[in-house]
């Protein structure tokens, strides 16, 4: 590309911006909405995860005490799995602090956000087999509820298989993005 062509492109952008300067573009309403906005969805999701997990734990304890269908050790195992999930979410949320977008360069931000997505998926895939194992053990403890357990397990296994397929595809795309970022940073 010749230098004069490049200069033409720069001139086009300058002209475009001078036309934009004559436009209002951002209304008072738009600015007000930005000021009233909540934090990003990812941070929100992590904030919701904690009370939601606590709610599930509460319901399980209630279930245990009111119906006595669940052995205590399974209840403890469930709670441990949920606590691991809560801790991993909180740990992961550190990667997407609200100031990251304003204070870090493009490569770093893209890398952190991709790492966040990767960790999120990995945590989920570690927890799913734990939940499956807990259901199997619970079924084994209560053979009288055999039919119900078979139905739950089949449903869970189908869901897990679909989940693993989506997980595998997403992880491939995430790893590819991380590889591209590495290449981009180092290639000359």
């Amino acid at each position: 590309m010749e230098n004069n062509e490049l200069e033409t492109l720069r001139q086009q952008v300058a002209e475009f911006k001078s036309r934009l300067d004559k436009q209002e573009i951002v209304s008072d309403r738009m600015l007000r909405e930005a000021m009233l906005s909540r934090t990003k969805w990812m941070i929100d999701a992590n904030r919701f995860a904690l009370p939601l997990s606590l709610l599930v734990i509460g319901l399980m304890i209630y279930y245990y005490y009111s119906m006595h269908l669940m052995p205590l050790w399974i209840l403890i195992l469930f709670i441990v799995v949920f606590l691991i999930e809560i801790a991993s979410n909180l740990l992961n949320a550190q990667l997407i602090r609200p100031d990251i977008i304003a204070t870090h360069n493009l490569v770093k931000v893209r890398r952190e956000l991709t790492k966040f997505r990767r960790r999120e998926k990995l945590y989920l895939m570690i927890n799913l087999p734990l939940i499956a194992l807990t259901i199997i053990l619970w079924a084994w403890q209560r053979p009288d509820l055999f039919q119900a357990w078979v139905a739950i397990l089949i449903g869970f296994l189908i869901g897990t298989l679909i989940g693993f397929f989506i997980f595998w595809r997403e992880m491939r795309s995430i790893n590819e993005t991380l590889r591209q970022i590495d290449e981009y940073e180092n290639a000359l």
């Binding site: 600015l31 909405e33 930005a34 934090t39 609200p98 100031d99 977008i101 304003a102």
Partner: peptide, 12 residues
């Protein structure tokens, strides 16, 4: 995108 940028701008 403009709205998202303004939200980030406000937060930072």
């Amino acid at each position: 995108l403009m709205q998202e940028v303004l939200i980030e701008l406000w937060q930072s």
